[in-house]
Amino acid sequence: MLTLFAVLQEHAETAEGGLPATFQVNPGLIIWTWVVFLSLFWLLRKYAFPPIVRLTEEREKKIGKQLQEAEKANAEAQAALAEHRKLLEGSKVEAQALLSEAKTLAQKEREQLLDKTRDDQKDLLDRAKREIAAERDRAVTELRKEAVDLSLAAAAKLIQERLDSDQDRKIVEGYLETLESDRA
């Protein structure tokens, strides 16, 4: 740096009368510039820039924070909305399921009832049929007994008349046979 000054100085001296004053370099002025500028720099840095920069940074930070908060709130609201939508959707589905379940249940119930009724009816019918058959059988047996008794009485009467004829017995039996086959 010192040599630089020396060179400049020398140059200024030799340029006396050669170079116009506008193009001469005065080393003293270089030092003055440093002194003035560095004092200005120090003063600005200490007293003037902090309010400007700090206040602005604070404001920027504040606005940034508010923006962030707003964004967060927005995101939260979105999430809540989505959740509500999901819940609504879920309850809808649930209601649908409940309804369809109830429907199927009712259907089943009705079918069961129908089946049971049908079975009962059939049972009743069967029993009635069976009773009718049994009644008829009993009636047939009774009738047959009656017929035999009647025949026996008739036969006794006949025997009392003429008991010797095998021929006659055969006739009676043959008659009973025909009676039976007629009934069957």
């Binding site: 100085q9 003293g28 030092i31």
Partner: peptide, 10 residues
């Protein structure tokens, strides 16, 4: 040193 520094304000 070898040089002259003129600090007179201009």
């Amino acid at each position: 040193g070898p040089m002259l520094i003129n600090l007179t304000p201009t």
